[in-house]
Design a protein around this nucleic acid. Sequence first.
DNA 1: TAATTTAATTTGGCGTCCAAAATAATGTTG
DNA 2: CAACATTATTTTGGACGCCAAATTAAATTA
Lengths: 418, 418
Amino acid sequence: MRGKADSDLVRRQNRHIVLEALRLHGPMPRVELGRITGLSPASITTIANQLIDDKAMRELNEAPDRSDPNRRGRPTVRVELNPDAALAIATKISIDGVDLALVNFAGKIIARKNTLIATYEVQPDAFGKALANIMRDFFDENSLKSGDVAHIGIAAQGVTHSQKGTIAWSPAFRATNIPVVEPVERETGVTCSIANDANMIAEGVMSADRYSYTGTAAVVFMGYGVGMGLVIDGKVYHGATGAAAEFGHMNHIPEGALCRCGRLGCLEAYASDYGILRFAKNLAEQTPPPSHAVPRHIMVDLENAARQGQANAVAAYQNAGRAIGFGLARMIALLNPDRIVLAGPGTRALDLIEPALRAAIDEGVVEELRRQVKIETVPIDTDMIIKGTIDATLRYLDLNIFASGPMRNLAEQKEPQQ
Amino acid sequence: MRGKADSDLVRRQNRHIVLEALRLHGPMPRVELGRITGLSPASITTIANQLIDDKAMRELNEAPDRSDPNRRGRPTVRVELNPDAALAIATKISIDGVDLALVNFAGKIIARKNTLIATYEVQPDAFGKALANIMRDFFDENSLKSGDVAHIGIAAQGVTHSQKGTIAWSPAFRATNIPVVEPVERETGVTCSIANDANMIAEGVMSADRYSYTGTAAVVFMGYGVGMGLVIDGKVYHGATGAAAEFGHMNHIPEGALCRCGRLGCLEAYASDYGILRFAKNLAEQTPPPSHAVPRHIMVDLENAARQGQANAVAAYQNAGRAIGFGLARMIALLNPDRIVLAGPGTRALDLIEPALRAAIDEGVVEELRRQVKIETVPIDTDMIIKGTIDATLRYLDLNIFASGPMRNLAEQKEPQQ
DNA sequence: TAATTTAATTTGGCGTCCAAAATAATGTTG
DNA sequence: CAACATTATTTTGGACGCCAAATTAAATTA
């Protein structure tokens, strides 16, 4: 049951949709903010001026637009998100290391830092310490103090536990239950949150094209692993512990191929880089996966071999397509989504994968359910995870800081102990 | 993006939570309504008196409670939902026929009617006509006129299309895309909606114990078929077309056993009554399922045989448990739910099914994901579908009629054409 | 009967929204 | 160039919903 409503809720909600409109559509005049949000001009005036007072927005100082010769009347004054309203840090933890991006409130990346860490053998506490050091260096390099950064968002490969702030299990680590949020918060004094990387890809894909993500959508990541981000009713779905949509470790065939997670028959064991490679090399299904990512050039070579008709390679991609297709068929039966988006480096080989994928969906689910699902592909972009993390973190600031009122509310944020 | 907020939203929301509190906890004094909803006594006075004006609520006329001898002060006056506020009809369409229940606003069943129809061979339009006739008879038998009934809710087995108001596909019909809502609305003049029967079971289970359904839960129905109702973020999830959670037709084994839906390897082909029976009889996996439900006594006999150690029967239930377990493991990987509830007549045999079911979950999903899932069983109750449909329909009335304000708003309900 | 206790209502004020009127800043026209 | 037209934004005044505090109501206790 949703809670009670009062004028506080109204103010938060309406300020939030104003900020959201600006984030989605960029600078625009107040009239248009009114059109988009459905708020009256009078309310827009009030809200805009408050947000400007709070430094969340600002007026653009530009010459009137003369491009339309038929334009009459008082010229519009466009407003935009104030880039200097706040800073945030987006973080990606993967098998390759730690990737950091410092962004301003308008979403512009101000600084980046990429640190290689041999994550696989590291001890849980040592990793927290290493991450804290990286973060501190990043603060120092950019002359940041604790109060300068409003939030730190972290995306990690594997099963993340958002409440506990840990990585419960990840292919990048041999260890489990690695504390992440706590060491970062202690070192920096900045609030921090962690989420699954595939969910962050979904955030990014959704932010880029939000108007069309009103219902349910699944964003599939194909590459060194297989992941999924679920958008349910227009919001990224995180599940009970923040570990939803572990599509790659959804079982495909009971007692099937050995997965990096140690279990048998996971989808990833058939459709990830190493799964495809293992099949193409004619290795037994039980052959242990490598502990490191398969180098890109090896996969590219394999794709080319398949395109030239090398039988094992062709079969490997068909096998992968079939696995993903059945996984999607199962997902469709459960969730009846509006659309499916395929993303990640694995989509390079989509021509090799797609026929088997579509055949498997047809085979695996009632026609009535799959008929209306749109399947799309998103351009390959290795930075999708960091972009999505930025989007999610900024949305967090919009809602939790700026929509609530002036900055002073930050102190009152905590639950009153009643 | 959620829309703007205004005082209208506040009023609707708060009236709704007041009605919801009464529906969940029964009659209570105003003070307690305030405690439960978080609204101030002043606001409760206002809202309660308006709802009483609108005939949605009424004061109980009872002698003061003397049970607590230490009780001081002005005695409480309890308020309750007004049973006469509205009437609604809940409808169940299944392979057995059509089941109707007339309920008052307080949820009491006033009349029932059960009509057998040989659904399987019927033509789509003929079914609509037959249903309309049944409905008209029900109106006549209870001296109801069009305006007397506020809404008709329908639950049907199979894939329902809530927007179109049709049954897209159902094991109860050979035909597909059967119009249901339109013929009923035309005959009765009452608004009508349709949903999947498993979703209605979830509504019922949730209503009975709502405080504990805050996150994500899956209610599995086992019996003549296998179904699932998903509760996501405290609300029953319906998917893009109203056909979500077709758990029974989620693929279990590619190219596996023949399902009633004509596809191979659906979970239902292993775990429904007929699937279990087919396995126990040692019939080939491709043996066509019967077009009618398996009589109860046959299943009971089979359970007893298994309990006495008859090998085929034991194996059949293990096989079913394994299928459901893997299906749940896949669902857990995708949705990371808080709880799973097993329901339906199939739970009679839970002792036979559960070990294999739990083993399959353990085998099929990472420990980090399944650790916190609670698995529960709900008492067998053949009327769960109709009960859930009643709950869902009354909740619809709460939100769409009584929370919005006085009845006159019913006329203004339609979208203004802007 | 007066004091105490608890429930419910009334009063007065606050915050947000909106419609309508007013103001601002430009282009058009005679 | 002055008056008019047009479009954007702000101001004004009123409505509605919430709440805290004061008040009233209806019992029990002393």
